[in-house]
Write a protein that binds this DNA or RNA. Structure first.
Lengths: 114, 114
DNA sequence: TTTATTTATGTCGAATGTGACATAATATGT
DNA sequence: ACATATTATGTCACATTCGACATAAATAAA
């Protein structure tokens, strides 16, 4: 499935590369980015599953709509603390974390000219 | 094994209870504490396995000996960011995290008078 | 014990992260 | 099209966290 898309893109002169390689990230920088992306997408997923708007989620998490937007956008001003506390505030528990990470962690990729 | 110890303590008038219950923690507070403890003990474990002093680890992590001590002691002034970045700096990767958490997460317990 | 090494604790100025607000952009419904 | 709801982005005063330093406490080596 993804293979097909990739081939189509390559035919059009694009190439998919790992973000780590393209940006020349050190392993720990790469790990940190992957973790942050996994957490922010998990927050969004859980908020939507709970059928909450960012505004409603903000009230539950004692935060603001704009900050929720930044959490879900992976904004660099958002700490891991806030990402994780948001998850917990939406009903995820620490014992859910291992599986959640297993499912959400994946190497970030970028599209470059071939 | 742990069962034996517990019985001995109970005979002496003590009782082991979950920290969450005793401190009346909300589920998300409990999760956060469990996670922090899991990470700080993992940092210590990895530092010792690498046979590093706190001083040496500090240099690697661009930090200071005193902060490493606080990381490993679960000091409240230490953020999840720092805990996790320390782990990554010691060679753990994001894909190691699920298993690492599975192995290190456990309910905190307290000893109270019976 | 005495000395050296390692770890723990308290404090502080600087750096980073926070909720809140305004407002722009986008999506959804009529 | 228009109005309404939702999400995104920029900014800022306030709070939290940082590395660094001093020094105490604990551990190991002599």
């Amino acid at each position: 499935m993804d293979q097909k898309k990739r081939k189509k893109m390559e035919a059009k002169g694009w190439k998919i590369t790992s973000a780590a390689e393209f940006l020349e990230l050190t392993p720990d920088e790469e790990s940190l980015i992957e973790l942050r992306l996994a957490l922010s997408s998990a927050v969004k997923k859980h908020r939507l599953e709970a059928k909450l708007t960012q505004e409603e989620a903000a009230r539950i998490l004692h935060s603001s709509q704009s900050r929720i937007a930044k959490i879900e956008a992976g904004d660099t001003t958002v700490s891991l603390d806030l990402l994780i506390r948001s998850l917990f505030g939406l009903g995820v528990t620490s014992s859910d974390l291992p599986k959640l990470l297993e499912q959400n962690l994946k190497p970030a990729s970028v599209l470059i000219e071939n």
